[in-house]
Write a protein that binds this DNA or RNA. Structure first.
Lengths: 363, 363
DNA sequence: TTGTATGCGTTATCAT
DNA sequence: ATGATAACGCATACAA
């Protein structure tokens, strides 16, 4: 037979039993007072006193088991070091903390296997919900998303009919903004340094680039397109390959990290930015403003997407019966020194209005 | 009377009871098989089969309540957007994930109140341990650290006798490396852009700067010292103030974010880097290598400190009786273009050996 | 209002 | 090897 129930927890810390015994009341009364429901003035006083004396703190686990919620929210992104995810994480952490919850982060390395494993682990119910921003999506993966045992919000593109809360932007259109701007500035030999074509953002941006050029009646020279991954080193290497075989007068990059790599490759190759080659990045992270020259960049509203995703998740946790919602955050272009000059004597476009309030779409 | 125990959890998900009933065995047997201890071949087969059929997944909360551990580890830093913490977090996340645990992040904003609150919340036992990197420390705060109810590892300076696991570096010496290097390169009017003097790193770096100059017999011109916070904008503003009243031929910055701000201020003021002003940052983050010119920077081994801190924490979780340990990570200087030139025709120092294996000290 | 008893889902103990 | 049951710490339905 197990030991008789003691008044202390295994590690000697006070429990409701400790408090109740000390106050000379039942654990039910103690619990009620501790939760601020019911109790006569006298009982309240005794319990409060006893709790203070022994330094009682409720056990979060036990409370979770009872309440069926952990107060935890998870975030899964490819790389917690990429500035775009850092900004997103910051925004999410803020919203989550304000709701009295805490944020758990996972780095997936962009591996589908890791992500599906993570999704399955949700069945353990160690968190109340999860925000995931996948760069690769398979049917398997999608299925895991759809019938997740806990609320999930996806940041990124998803099939239109996927019944999952979703915050997205339109990076395809975003790339278009960059191309439009460069064309208006008189550039014609516009190159593109992209991330992997087996990723969702990679294909969207590629499509956007091609569509935009076509829209301007510019024939695409395939030598002006190069691919790496979404990091700095790959961006620099890809740009070096590109420069070895072609002469762009402008470069659009699939994110800011790549753009920084491109900038270095350009400067190392003796090209002036923006005089010889105009440069536009994407994500509009703090990094873009830190470079010299400062980088023009297409904002995809990463902080806002993070904030909105967190809000969607909290709402769904509060009410799981909500229909799937979709929020769209519009891209915008921030023009800075890396593309602002007018080397061909064409008037530069006006600076766009600062961060327009993003329209909200619910589907 | 409460309802009879059912075989499903409140939300309709299978529990051990479901599996046991389906397999026609007791929950004890089911649990044993599920945990891989004991069970006849026949029982094992039946239970495994039943579990697979109903898609049983153990509940992490219930398991935690029983095992008295959550499998969660927390990290509290000032700003999860600062590249130095990003690197630290990355390293920590990696170690923590490899141990099968998960990482929880908190942003404290450098506020002591937030941190002590966080420390107190540890009493709720929602995590198995915590890594905290405070930039401000008070006695109160220190007391909370010492008698924390769960293992805590501190990254940063602490009073020598504090009985807390501690990973530290020596930023005072680190600043000295920068000054030595600049003096060797012939610079004499060396300025310093620091963070707040009411922070631990702030005072350490200030002391290091003054000591290093004194060591070279150089009188300090107070107009060459300026203070802001540890972020980009403040670094730039502080440098602008400094440049308005003094003519440095070199600048040491208390971190890389400040150094980037300084670089921009210098370039905006028409100073060439490094020809007119040599620049050295601190933390040696990826950012330093991304700037043009690339920034020399004093590495404080942020990734390694993170890794070591995580290891210390995991060890202590495994064995709480361990004596307090202290790990020291040595600073080193990475010389790059921002300070590599020899404008005064003094021979430049040789590139230091690449990342020496850090000596380990246990106190 | 108060106390008793039960359940949250799991693992551990003990007797069989 | 197996099953009944206690225990983890808390909250609550119900009876008093």
């Amino acid at each position: 037979m197990g030991r008789k129930r003691l008044q202390e927890s295994a590690d000697g810390r006070p429990t409701v039993h400790t408090v109740a015994a000390r106050a000379g009341v039942s654990i039910a009364s103690a619990s009620r007072v501790l939760n601020g429901v019911g109790g006569s003035p006298e009982t309240v006083r005794k319990v409060r006193e006893a709790a203070a004396e022994v330094g009682y703190v409720p056990n979060a686990i036990a409370r979770s088991l009872q309440s069926q919620r952990t107060g935890l929210v998870a975030l899964a992104v490819e790389d917690i070091g990429n500035p775009v995810y850092v900004e997103m994480m910051r925004a999410i952490e803020s919203v989550v903390a304000d709701s009295g919850r805490q944020l758990l982060v996972h780095a997936t390395g962009g591996q589908i296997a890791n992500e599906t494993a993570l999704l399955r682990r949700l069945a353990h119910r160690y968190v109340d919900g999860m925000i995931v921003s996948p760069i690769r999506v398979t049917d398997d993966h999608l299925a895991a998303l759809v019938d997740s045992p806990v609320p999930v919000v996806v940041v990124g593109q998803l099939p239109a009919d996927a019944p999952v809360d979703n915050v997205r932007t339109d990076s395809r259109t975003g790339v278009g903004l960059a191309v439009d701007h460069l064309v208006a500035a008189g550039r014609r030999r516009i190159g593109f340094v992209n991330g992997p074509l087996d990723t969702v953002p990679g294909v969207a941006r590629d499509a956007g680039f091609r569509a935009a050029l076509a829209g301007h009646g510019i024939a695409l020279d395939e030598r002006l397109v190069e691919v790496g991954d979404f990091r700095y080193a790959a961006g620099r290497a890809a740009t070096e390959r590109l420069l070895a075989r072609a002469q762009p007068d402008a470069l659009v990059c699939a994110n800011d990290l790549i753009a920084v790599g491109a900038l270095h490759a350009l400067l190392a190759a003796g090209r002036r930015v923006p005089e010889d080659v105009a440069l536009v990045g994407m994500d509009d992270t703090e990094l873009a403003r830190m470079m010299f020259p400062q980088l023009s960049s297409v904002s995809l509203g990463s902080a806002e997407r993070g904030r909105r995703a967190a809000e969607l998740l909290l709402q769904r946790i509060a009410d799981p019966t909500l229909p799937p919602r979709r929020v769209q955050v519009a891209p915008s272009l921030a023009v800075r020194a890396s593309s602002a000059s007018t080397p061909l004597f064409v008037p530069a476009p006006a600076e766009p209005a600062p961060a327009p309030r993003t329209p909200e779409v619910t589907a």
